[in-house]
Design a protein around this nucleic acid. Structure first.
Length: 420
RNA sequence: CGGAGUGUAGCGCAGUCUGGUAGCGCACCUGGUUUGGGACCAGGGGGUCGAAGGUUCGAGUCCUUUCACUCCGACCA
């Protein structure tokens, strides 16, 4: 895409009410903007592109693991919530309203009931099991205190998956598969993370694990073992405990952002909702369930909390809105502009997501383009400037801001190697 | 929900104590000069000062009420 045609309102100064690094940078770099209410954000073009990239990675790995993507309405009948008693349990966080016929509804904060409803009216036999259905959809929680930008908004994008099984053993197999799948997703996104034992909270069920993006700004405190892979939220391990319950090693405390959470549910939803299937002995049994969530929009905040410097965002390769920013230093110089256009077409032909900074207005000089590149944080920039007459350009790596002079002839090849 | 703050142009702020015609920087528009690190000069547009009520000849400023937002806490897939 062309910078001149994209709405990218970068700012020198951030709104004074933003305190968290990721919040400040995402606002300043023009990814999101406030939308007139606490915890509500407009997703501007760069933010939408990036969110879609992260979403695509989540979808790709889930589909490979055999999950079925579906879409449920954001508006759920309150009657479903009353079947499990969670209408009361969720309290005011559940935003309720009535339609013109005075029927009660809610904006979905999570969808256990709705998904169980989908399955109970579709799946009748053990032969249809196991089944893992998911959606990536906007959720709404009327948080007591929304804060920190995308970290705790009221509206947020969440991937919520639900698995249905005939036996506990099969559910545990799926739980392990989801843990591996989540590890692949977090690894592809370039995140430093830790899987920890967690409390099941309002969702209920037996075992649960959280995927923590390690960051000092995280809202959760976790205990990690220095000699094995054990980790736990302080909710489930005493904070003063110093020995690992698994191997006896030393525990130390750190902070994390909860970006994923997987649960072994059992029948806590299927029983009250009478979601049952016929087993091979022709007997009705409730589904054994698991549920698996990822805060997709929160992941963006997590990526930036972990990857930034004093100049701006440093997106990881798979999350970046564009992989390469072509900076045409003087857009009115036809030699530079033509070289930029040619490189843009070449990279596009190779399937590289590339941004051409073709801005030619007199306010937007070389300095502005560089500052925007650094603030937005694409992995690479190619500067096409005065040396183009000798066939030379500059390649800048955002992480570390290392610059190297390159021959334009071999540039595409070099970039493809770096992106591989 | 408890505690602490803040609301003045798109963003950052001054002005409020001590009432007297609404200001500054950035951004935006016009013209010119610039052009490898957020340029310069000149001119210009944009405001019911969060809202309502009150005091006063006169309120951004004083009083009352209210709303919104932020931070700390409690809460939280």
């Amino acid at each position: 895409m062309r910078f001149s045609r994209l709405l990218i309102p970068t700012m020198k100064e951030a709104p004074s009410d933003a305190v968290l690094t990721s919040h400040i940078l995402l606002l300043r770099a023009g990814f999101i903007q406030t939308s007139g209410g606490s915890g509500l954000y407009n997703w501007l073009p760069l933010g939408k592109i990036t969110l879609d990239k992260v979403r695509a990675i989540v979808k790709d790995e889930l589909d490979k693991a055999g999950c079925n993507e579906v879409h449920l309405p954001m508006v759920t009948s309150l009657a479903l919530w009353e079947e499990t008693g969670r209408a009361d349990k969720f309290g005011k966080e559940l935003l309720r309203f009535k339609d013109r016929h005075e029927n009660s509804f809610t904006l979905s904060p999570t969808n256990e009931e709705a998904m169980v409803n989908l399955v109970r009216q579709t799946v009748k036999s053990y032969k249809q099991l196991p089944l893992n259905v998911y959606q990536i959809n906007w959720k709404f929680r009327d948080e007591v205190r929304p804060r920190f930008g995308l970290m705790r908004g009221r509206e947020f994008l969440m991937k919520d998956a639900y698995s249905f099984h005939a036996t506990t053993e099969d559910m545990e197999r799926e739980f392990a598969l989801m843990e591996e799948t989540y590890k692949k997703i977090f690894t592809r996104l370039g995140l430093d993370f830790k899987v920890v034992e967690a409390d099941s909270g309002a969702i209920g069920g037996a075992g649960s694990k959280e995927f923590m993006v390690l960051a000092d700004s995280g809202e959760d405190t976790i205990m990690v073992c220095d000699s094995c892979d054990f980790g736990a939220n302080v909710e489930v391990v005493a904070e003063d405990e110093s020995k690992c319950p698994k191997c006896g090693g030393n525990l130390s405390q750190t902070k994390g952002i909860e970006a994923g959470h997987i649960f072994q549910l059992g029948t806590v939803y299927s029983e009250p909702m009478k979601a049952e299937f016929l087993n091979e002995n022709q007997k009705l049994e409730p589904f054994i369930m698991g549920t698996y969530g990822i805060g997709v929009s929160r992941l963006l905040a997590g990526i930036i909390e972990q990857n930034h410097d004093e100049k701006g965002c440093v997106w990881t390769k798979e999350s970046a809105p564009f992989k390469v920013d072509i900076i045409v230093a003087k857009a009115k110089n036809s030699e530079q502009m033509e070289a930029g256009e040619k490189l843009y077409a070449q990279l596009q032909a190779k399937g590289v997501d590339v941004l051409l900074d073709d801005r030619a207005d007199k306010k937007t000089g070389f300095g502005v383009k560089m500052k925007d590149f650094e603030l937005i944080g694409m992995p690479y920039a190619v500067v096409i400037g005065n040396d183009i007459s000798e066939g030379k350009v500059e390649l800048i790596t955002r992480d570390g801001l290392e610059k190297e002079e390159m021959d334009l002839d071999s540039l595409v090849e070099t970039i493809m190697e770096k992106l591989a």
